[in-house]
Design a protein around this nucleic acid. Structure first.
Length: 417
RNA sequence: GUGAGCGUAGUUCAAUGGUAGAGCCCAGGAUUGUGGAUCCUGUUGUUGCGGGUUCGAGCCCCGUCGCUCACCCCA
């Protein structure tokens, strides 16, 4: 009986781990520069959290969640995104939700029961940040600029930052009315799905790629024109902060998000290098969500980025593969015990080291050493045993020298990569 | 949920319906203590699975499973 992995999940083997690590390290570094602190949240929550938080009508909740019953008959769901969990954790923890501003970030797996394709998995990983407690447009800017720093840090080329404001509960209803009116009068041209969207979520019609619906978009009412003065001010402040920081962006008046909780600022980092997908990070402001999930009214802003998508974008320029500090080679099996003892000491000193215990020829051991990408070969034979030395060979320059046993570890530490 | 393409060695791919092969990888070697180049030798398969047509199927037909890409949607 052999087994295969479930559809849409992935094994990431050592050869790709440096790519992964470069991304998560960059995220952590930048989050810390911006004074965000890591929070580790559970991978499952009561289903209600997501249906309330993300919205029952969204695709994520209505058809993409991995939901199951626990033994007591309560419905649990593998998290399809991080924000709802972070909000729940924030609300539940008085230590943090009484702070005037609370900045958190997370890194972890998310689960959505979609058909897998390039850049889209059923179990995928995101890092994201959430900021609670302040409505200042400066924080919208800060969150966007933090993601921008990570993208630059990772050397991602040819990406574009799209921003928009989708208004607040004061001004959005009026816009939605206009939008409905507009599409109602053109209903005959709309595709089947969009006729449904007209009632449930008219904003989404703007996202439709069908020719008929797309054509209507050009003459559709544009959200920015309907913003109340508070939202308009907020939006222009965000833009001027971005311009002031030299961050290029394009306003996309039709940028709407697939999750219900957003208000005011929305943004997406997009590229054409991801096949059918185009966004590698996205987010926005969500001032009502904390309250919807039972907390005190608290403004918030955040984003999430797809780690696998970032891997696709950065794998063309891979970081150095993992390497080993030392590989021990012995000329005769009778010196294996001695070599193993040296190996043990090196590891205790914090030097990564390995050995081939098979007792095969030196040539064979050298080959193995080469494959392990070792920095130094440590050779032990008759001479070395008699002199209490080790021959240390630099695998890059092929130069070698004898070093007394006591000084080997110090030498390697001083010459590590 | 919908559509298209593809399943042959660890991997990348060959094989007019007529004995399943090559490159790479891997393993060993090219004299006596030394890796990456070169050369030599060697290992590896129920051709995804199950039926059918045929004297004969990796190849044709049907089913099934899986993968990939795209739509939808999204990070």
């Amino acid at each position: 009986m052999s087994f295969t992995k479930a559809p849409g999940v992935e094994d990431i083997f050592p050869d790709r781990i440096p790519v992964w690590n470069r991304i998560t390290a960059s995220a952590r570094r930048n989050f810390e520069l911006f004074n965000f602190r890591e929070v580790i949240i559970p991978v499952m929550e009561y289903t209600e959290l997501f249906s309330r938080g993300i919205g029952d009508e969204t695709d994520i909740v209505s058809k993409e969640m991995f939901t199951f019953e626990d033994r007591g008959g309560r419905s649990l769901t593998l998290r399809p995104e991080g924000t709802a969990s972070v909000v729940r954790a924030y609300n539940e923890n008085g230590e943090y939700n009484r702070l005037s501003v609370c900045k958190l970030f997370y890194i972890g797996s998310m689960f959505r029961a979609e058909r897998p394709q390039k850049g889209r998995l059923r179990q995928f990983n995101q890092f994201g940040a959430e900021l609670f407690g302040d409505d200042s447009p400066f924080y919208d800017y800060e969150v966007i600029s933090m993601m921008n720093s990570i993208a630059i840090d990772l050397g991602i080329l040819n990406y574009e930052l799209l921003i928009n404001s989708i208004g607040c509960e004061e001004c959005r209803p009026a816009y939605l009315e206009k939008l409905k009116e507009y599409y109602q009068s053109n209903k005959s041209v709309l595709c089947e799905d969009c006729v449904k969207r007209l009632e449930k979520n008219p904003l989404r019609i703007l996202d439709c790629k069908k020719d008929g619906c797309k054509a209507l978009k050009d003459a559709a009412p544009v959200l920015p024109e309907f913003l109340c003065s508070s939202c308009a001010d907020h939006h222009s402040s965000v833009k001027s902060y971005l311009s002031g920081a030299g961050i290029a962006f394009r306003e996309d008046p039709f940028l709407v998000r697939g999750l219900d909780y957003y208000a005011k600022t929305t943004f997406e980092f997009v590229t054409t290098a991801l096949g059918g997908q185009n966004a590698f990070a996205a987010g926005g402001r969500y001032n009502k969500l904390v309250e919807i999930l039972g907390g005190k009214p608290t403004p918030a802003v955040g984003f999430a980025a797809g780690i696998e998508r970032l891997m696709i974008l950065t794998e063309t320029n891979p970081p150095a593969p993992l390497s080993l500090d030392a590989f021990i080679i012995y000329s005769d099996e009778k010196y294996f015990q001695h070599s193993a003892e040296l190996l043990r000491k090196l590891r205790m000193e914090g030097i990564s080291a390995d050995i081939d215990p098979s007792g095969k020829s030196m040539k064979s051991q050298m080959k193995k050493m080469d494959r392990e990408n070792a920095r130094f070969a440590l050779i032990i034979g008759d001479e070395e045993i008699n002199e209490k030395t080790v021959t240390v060979k630099d695998t890059a320059t092929r130069e070698q020298q004898k070093i007394s046993e006591g000084e080997v570890s110090a030498f390697i530490k001083n010459n590590k990569r």
